[in-house]
Simulated scan of single mutants.
Amino acid sequence: MSEAAICAGRSRTTWSDPGEGGDRQFSTRAAGGIAVCAGVDYREAGPLRNACMSSPPSHARALPPPRPARSDEAARLWALRTQAVRATCISHYDAATVAAWSASPLPESYARMIAAGGAVLIEEDGELLGYGIVDLDGAEVEAMFVDPARGGRGLGARLMAEIDAIARAHGLPALTVASSLNAVAFYQAMGFRTIGEDAYAHPCGVSLACVRMHKHL
């Protein structure tokens, strides 16, 4: 698992979480974690969900195109991740767990994965709206975070589409994700299927319940 994909939303109906990838047996890596998606309402996954329940309002501002993230932006991305965990994971995890989880420091692996070309972000007027990271070595969704105040615009779905495209371009046949409990519906809308429940021993010292998920590309 990897501690990088988090999706935080503006309400308790918004889902988010972690992941890892690959058409292989699941295994927990000592340095890993879970992925949370912040600010994404699973009902707004559009054509990626068979029963789309709603869509962004007609007056919504068009999304800026995603761009590759740079290694020197790792701290900026991590700050959004921290905000997303604190804002949305409290709906499914206790306060003490969220406090310890969100306080964990930026891992060295972030810069490596970004440098490898596995990270994309969306920004608007200089503000970071969301980002996603795939660990190309492990075929794993490492991060998926959206600003909790910017939900409802399809950011999560747009970022996930970019991550899928990057994975395919690097020859990956499938992706897996260890989703936080609040992000399971989002990943289901993105085409992932549930493998089973698990618990991740986070480096911060807490055990995080998660759901292992997988999808073919």
Rank of each mutant, 00 (worst) to 15 (best):
E73A: 01
S71M: 10
A95Y: 05
G196S: 04
A35Q: 06
A84V: 03
A157S: 15
S179L: 15
P148I: 00
A189G: 09
G32H: 09
A157Y: 12
P148V: 00
V141M: 08
P107K: 12
P56S: 05
V184W: 04
A31E: 14
M190D: 02
R81C: 01
G132T: 04
A62I: 07
A103N: 11
A143L: 05
W15D: 00
L80E: 02
H170D: 05
C204D: 08
L129A: 02
D135R: 06
R150P: 00
V177N: 05
V177M: 07
E3V: 11
A8V: 15
M160W: 14
S180K: 07
D23S: 10
D17L: 14
L175H: 07
A157L: 12
E108V: 15
G33I: 07
A95N: 03
V98F: 01
D72H: 12
F145G: 03
Y93Q: 02
D17W: 14
R10Q: 10
P105Q: 02
G151C: 13
A115I: 11
G171Q: 07
A165E: 12
E197P: 00
I90E: 01
A31I: 13
A4W: 11
I114A: 05
R150Q: 14
G21F: 06
A149K: 14
A96S: 15
V120N: 02
C52V: 06
M113H: 01
G154F: 02
I163R: 01
Y110V: 13
V177A: 11
A4Y: 12
E140V: 04
